[in-house]
Simulated assay, not measured.
Amino acid sequence: MGLLARVRKEWFIVGIVLVILSAKLQPSVGVRGGPLKPEITIAYVAVSLIFFNSGLSLKTEELTSALLHVRLHLFVQSFTLVFFPLVVWLLLKVLALTAIDQWLLRGLQTVSCMPPPVSSAVILTKAVGGNEAAAIFNSAFGSFLGIVVTPVLLLLFLGSSSAVPFSSIFSQLFMTVVVPLVLGQVCRGFFREYLERRKLPFGAISSVVLLLIIYSTFCDTFSNPNIELDPTSLLLVVLIIFSIQISFMLLTFAFTTRSGSGFSPADTVAIMFCSTHKSLTLV
């Protein structure tokens, strides 16, 4: 396979590298309040487009079937909002004895208490042919659930309370997730034959939107002049996060593919992405 063909096949991975490099070179473009206006274009337009796109591409019966898959939902939500933060808390008890910056460890615990991602899990599940409908439901439901559960988890594991603007986050999630999804389903009802005949690149569209979200996130990261961290501690935390991610994905894969689990391969894909990834919506 030639280099060009390889790049075309792995264009999304190449795109991630390019947007991160672009954010590093010129973070002021995609930072909050910058020319790109990510507080509007990303937080509202991009996320809405992802769920409208999903509503347009998914059959209504697939969404209905996913809604009734209670076993899958229980697994995802209990794993990400109970098992995940508990394991990280136990791990940090050990890491607290090391020289790693304690604020980085507290940050790791904070992220572990977050709900499933709003958009990335849906896009990644769709990209590899997983149960997209289940990923949509758990991303949305987990985000709404996190408004209540995450502050409780932070209080339990960090001993600090946090004020979550319930009404604003709830309305934002409703307007960027539920409404676009419903509108997409309504539009699909009118254009079903056309959509099934043309086979539009819904997956590619969502992936491009995700690249914009990644770009904006790294612009915010690189534009912060106040980050002064011990390079060794930072490197160790990156390795820890990578190890946790791989371990949890392997664990969910092993559990959901064992004999008698009741999960299909498509369910396994959705579970792996929804259970092991975290959203920063509430941060």
Rank of each mutant, 00 (worst) to 15 (best):
A99S: 13
H277W: 05
G146F: 07
R258P: 05
S120G: 03
P151A: 06
F12K: 05
L156T: 12
E39F: 13
S120T: 14
V164E: 00
F170T: 13
G55Q: 15
S259I: 09
F157C: 10
V31D: 07
L145D: 00
Q26M: 13
S54T: 13
L36T: 01
G159D: 04
I169H: 02
M1Q: 04
V111R: 01
V178H: 05
T98S: 14
L173Q: 07
L58Y: 02
V237M: 06
P117G: 07
L250M: 10
P201F: 07
V237G: 02
V148H: 02
L97V: 08
L124A: 10
L3V: 13
F157H: 11
V111Y: 02
G159A: 06
T217D: 02
K199M: 05
M175N: 14
F190P: 00
R32D: 12
L158D: 06
A121H: 01
I246A: 13
F190H: 06
S243L: 12
S78P: 02
M175K: 15
I50Y: 04
G159C: 08
V186K: 12
L104T: 01
K59W: 04
I169V: 15
S171T: 15
F144A: 11
V19N: 08
P180W: 14
P85D: 06
P180E: 06
P165E: 05
P116Y: 02
D267S: 06
C113Y: 04
F83K: 01
S261T: 05
E196Q: 11
F170A: 15
V148L: 14
S259K: 14
L36G: 01
A266T: 14
G129N: 01
H73C: 07
S65K: 12
A133D: 08
E228G: 07
E193D: 13
A96R: 12
C187T: 11
W89C: 05
T125R: 08
T232A: 10
L282R: 12
L18C: 14
L97S: 11
Q26K: 10
S261F: 02
F253C: 05
T217E: 00
R71E: 10
F83V: 15
F141D: 02
F137K: 04
I40S: 06
T252M: 00
T281M: 13
F170D: 10
R106C: 00
L95R: 00
L58M: 15
L18G: 07
E39K: 11
K126L: 11
V186D: 04
